[in-house]
Amino acid sequence: MERPRIGIFKYSCCAGCQFQLIYFQEHLLETFGAVDIVYGRMETSAGSEEGPFDVVLIEGAITESKQADQLKAVRGRSKYLVPIGSCAVNGGIPAIKNLTPELEVEQRVYSRIEPIHSVRAHPADEYVRVDAYLRGCPVGETDLIELVTALLLGTRPRMIDYCVCVECKRRGNTCILVAEGAPCMGPVTNAGCGALCPSNHRSCYACWGPMPGANAPALARKFEAMGMPPDEIVRRFTEFGCPTLEFRKGAELYE
């Protein structure tokens, strides 16, 4: 594809994935040279949300009905639509609020809730068909480069779809779950970070969300056998991606 026309839409999130795209990542100037960001309010005052786009990148969780309406409209203006980052892919941190009744969460923060129109936090695929998932918190560089390259070549991107354990083994780390009894979420978490936490003396906290088809109940039972209290097990499976079927199955055993 010649210079793909890209639109970036931000919903409820920290905007870190956009910053990863336009600032933090290694191949910043090459990316700017290869694609046209024709709409992205954090990047440019030009362009309009009307498109048309070759690819729309969705950042953030959907937490208001007008965001959902816009998302559906944007889907119709783009060849491809890809959620980027945990919030858009699996609900991420914003979805922690789904564990408490919405009204209660709102009243903890605002004394008057009349101006507030929030709904439960959901990932993009709750509302529209998506063509790929660009995972990570923030999005991983390997997947990001793979996606841009595949677009330019017109091929199907091959995104990372295995768990953090694979990357740990590649780095030659001793397994902290087995050897130290650390509450590591690596076995159920999608890889792409390079096993960052286990390589820095801490347990994976699942910031990339579940690997597709992850066996969360097995890991939850392992945590129980290690002596972890039920409320702690629930927290492990609800920090990131609690709306996903995979992590729900881990948490619901101990709720």
Partner: peptide, 28 residues
Amino acid sequence: EPPRFFEGFLVGRRYDEVGDIVARICGI
């Protein structure tokens, strides 16, 4: 920008999760 309710959903989370959660308030 729609409210994000960090102060609401931090209630019930343990101290050792808080740093990782509040990091996600801002990507910069």
